[in-house]
Design a protein around this nucleic acid. Structure first.
Length: 619
RNA sequence: GCACUCGUAGCUCAAUUGGAUAGAGCAUCGGCCUUCGGAGCCGAGGGUUGGGGGUUCGAAUCCCUCCGAGUGCGCCA
């Protein structure tokens, strides 16, 4: 086994030592290896002694001593230090650390370009369902987090080696199309321009107003729903035009956002239309009303029955009590078919899950939607499990996130209370970034020997910084909470922001440009690394820990952990940059430092790429 | 009423899922430009982790209980 991470390596060494201490037939114990919070406690620490003390009826300090005597770290760490009640502080040898990042991470290992991250031993087929905007409407801030987060999950899981299927579950079906079809029978449809969605969104508002005022129009709209669903060519033609133009607009936004979703990832609600009736009938068969007196299974059960004219599934726990209740205290059903016969999103989600499990044969489905839909997903997962459509081997995750709030702490809206259009928000971010770039250029123009940036390159930088800032600001927060949107903070150079990270990267590129100008010696892959300065060592250790962050993001779907790592990496580099001259250093030191720069740049670029953020050589 | 999320420095956020003296950025105050990009770096002050109990070697983290904020709860998605 390749112990690509230092953490893995230490775990296995300490597990062996603890096994020795405990004796032969003891169950394996987690060695509790943690990263030390303070450099004076070493690089890592083993915290197992305290918890083992009681079990061995010995003093924690003595247990720590026995572990320290048993563990084989001669080649990788300085002698262990026992501190406090029984902490074992581990300080890696400089030579080992240098060799580790040079050999394992530099691409001479079996996973070149992966910075030491090995592909998973158990690749799974994973669906990531995200973004999911509504056809005939502009995307707004409400779609931002799902789109950005879902894209990172797809990138990271794919990087880890899983077979990722992206699904854009767009809202392209439903009663609103009746109104639009009826409306466009009397009015021209907007052309497939960039403003198509803005126009259809306005038309929808007009159609909806007319629907409520004009009984004749309302009737035609209702009939149009039926015509669409029964495949009437005219109705379908209008619908298809709307869907096609909408998709083109979505794709433009995805390109702008550097999101990987393509036209082929679109599998809208309409796709499942033909499967809904069978889905509901299957539920009716699977969940008959229970005879009284039959013992309830431990996992609970479901009942299918009509209630107030709607076809419903009711969920019960192991005691036969309703799992969910409404505000009136009555049991709360999942409605799978309305009293007028129409289907709802619960039926669509169930049909989609069946399709994915049976036809796409996936091992895991990740739904990226906001936290407000939590109850829906709990109920829907519950039905899918009880129906057997989601067997225990199929992992289901509802990845939730909070709302985007404005500076006043309320959900982000325009002054007139409208949703903020996504393209407008992104354009403003790029415009603000461009202003900063221009300001910086104007200041630096006075510097001797400065070659100004071409207008085209300035624009490219502004896009990378502006879009990167919006994405990074979102991703760097723990997704569970709401998050305060602030252009000023996200475009700030200080702190955990995209510009700070991009600046660190650009500084490294600048060193390489300068090195190439002066003479041709840049980093040679065989250069020996020496870590004599504190800043060199700290940077090297940070680089070696790249895989730890990736592991956490992949396991817990928490991108902010990767952001925090990259911030620490960039900050470590900045300190190194201040303390350790690279190009002025001579011979071996210079080669070694160039190597550190190269590794830092690679880690930053790969990390940011997994976050869907573009790096730039100058800014 | 029930359920979920959250409450950490004046502000915006972390805390490797139970580890040592709770860390960053902003703001405030003070240092560093004849050296590779100062969009930078270093330092100082700033905390009863909403309150109170409990669990244990050890709690921001787990349990109970109050307080406060947000969200959801039958035919929208």
């Amino acid at each position: 086994m390749v112990e690509s991470h230092l953490l893995d390596l230490l775990r296995s060494r300490f597990s062996a030592a603890i096994a020795t201490v405990l004796g032969d037939n003891a169950a394996p114990i987690d060695p509790l290896i943690r990263v030390s919070q303070d450099a004076k406690f070493g690089d890592y620490q083993c915290n197992a002694a305290m918890s083992l003390a009681k079990r061995l009826s010995a003093k924690p300090h003595d247990v720590a001593k026995r572990i320290a005597e048993s563990v084989d770290l001669g080649d990788i760490a300085e002698p262990l230090e026992i501190a406090g009640p029984g902490f074992l502080n581990i300080r890696l040898k400089n030579d080992f650390l240098a060799a580790h990042i040079a050999d394992i991470l530099a691409g001479s290992d079996e996973f070149p370009g992966r910075l030491g991250v090995a592909p998973t031993a158990q690749p799974l087929r994973v669906i990531v369902e995200y973004s999911s905007p509504n056809v005939a409407k502009l995307m707004h801030v409400g779609h931002l987090r799902s789109t950005i987060l879902g894209d990172v999950f797809g990138r990271v899981l794919s990087f880890i080696g899983h077979d990722v299927i992206r699904q854009n579950h767009v809202g392209d079906w439903g009663t609103q199309f009746g109104m639009l079809i009826a409306w466009y029978a009397d009015h021209p449809m907007p052309s497939d321009s960039v403003d198509f969605l803005a126009a259809t969104e306005e038309d929808y508002k007009l159609a909806y107003a007319k629907f409520r005022e004009d009984a004749e129009f309302a009737e035609r709209a209702r009939l149009a729903v039926g015509r669409l669903q029964s495949g009437d060519p005219d109705a379908r033609c209008v619908w298809q035009q709307i869907c096609r133009a909408s998709r083109a607009a979505f794709l433009a936004t995805y390109r702008q956002l550097r999101v990987l979703l393509t036209d082929e990832d679109v599998r809208g609600e309409s796709f499942y239309n033909g499967r809904l009736a069978d889905c509901v009938e299957s539920l009716r068969r699977l969940f008959p009303q229970r005879e009284p007196g039959i013992p309830t299974p431990s996992e609970g059960f479901a009942e299918f029955r009509e209630d107030a004219g709607a076809q419903c599934v009711f969920l019960y726990d192991a005691k036969g009590q309703p799992r969910y209740k409404g505000p009136d205290g009555n049991e709360l059903p999942v409605i799978v078919q309305k009293k007028d016969g129409a289907y709802l999103y619960a039926s669509t989600d169930l049909a989609a899950l069946r399709f994915r499990a049976q036809d796409l044969k996936v091992d895991r489905i990740i739904y990226v939607t906001d936290a407000r839909q939590k109850l829906h997903f709990q109920m829907f997962f519950g039905i899918a499990r009880l129906a057997g459509w989601a067997p225990p081997s199929l992992r289901l995750d509802h990845v939730t996130f909070g709302s985007v709030l404005g500076e006043d702490g309320t959900p982000l809206k325009t002054r007139d209370g409208q949703n903020v259009k996504l393209h407008e928000l992104l354009e403003e971010a790029v415009a603000r970034a461009a202003a900063v770039v221009d300001e910086n250029e104007a200041r630096r123009a006075a510097e001797p020997g400065y070659t100004p940036l071409a207008a085209e390159e300035r624009a490219r930088i502004a896009r990378a910084v502006g879009i990167g800032a919006v994405k990074y600001a979102d991703l760097s927060r723990d997704r569970n909470g709401d998050y305060l949107f602030s252009f000023d903070r996200m475009l700030s150079m200080q702190g955990n922001t995209a510009p700070y990270m991009l600046y660190a990267y650009a500084r490294i590129r600048s060193i390489y440009r300068k090195a190439a100008e002066r003479d041709s010696t840049t980093a040679s892959p065989s250069a020996r690394l020496t870590l004599s300065a504190a800043a060199e060592r700290a940077l090297a250790l940070r680089i070696a820990r790249f895989g730890e962050a990736i592991d956490i993001v992949a396991a817990d779907l928490l991108p902010h952990v990767l952001c925090a790592y990259l911030y620490d990496l960039a900050a470590d580099f900045m300190r190194f940059y201040e303390e350790c001259p690279v190009l002025q250093a001579d011979g071996a030191t210079r080669a070694s430092r160039l190597r550190l720069c190269d590794l830092t740049a690679r880690a930053l670029r790969l990390g940011l790429d997994l976050l869907g953020i573009e790096t730039i050589d100058r800014m």
